[in-house]
Amino acid sequence: MQEKISTSPIFNIVSRILFAPIIIFGLYVQFHGDYGPGGGFQAGVIIAAAFILYSMIFGLKNGETLVPVKINRYLMCVGVLLYAGVGLVSLFLNGKYLDYNVLSSDPSGGQHLGIILVELGVGITVATVMIALYHSFASFGDSND
């Protein structure tokens, strides 16, 4: 089964122009989540949407060279471990699990740091899981049979 790759110039150019702004918007949503609507879940999905757009227009093969499957799977684990790791660090600093007060000398600053790290973990996990979902759906039925 041969995958169809779009040759229309409109798709090519529009996706090329949109790719970077989507990622920048995702990062804005990720790090502005404390002050406005947004956070790890939304940012992860928006960043994943940029990569999914790329693999939809330029074909799955090019998409997989942009985000290699192996690295994507490692990053999935890194996100979850980052979240759980923040909890462990606060355990080692004589706090309770996921108690961010002890992360910094000032409790309020510790909370800020903890929330940013945890949201980053959530964002990485969601983004990579969504990319992995798309890639496995797109590649189904191509190799075997």
């Binding site: 956070g39 879940f41 999905v45 969601v126 979902l133 759906f137 039925g141």
Partner: peptide, 24 residues
């Protein structure tokens, strides 16, 4: 609800994967 929406999509993707395997 925010977390439930994302989890809902992930689980329905799992359901779709099962459907594709059933079709195969």
């Amino acid at each position: 609800i925010l977390t439930a929406i994302v989890v809902g999509v992930a689980t329905s993707a799992l359901g779709l994967a099962l459907v594709l395997q059933i079709y195969k």
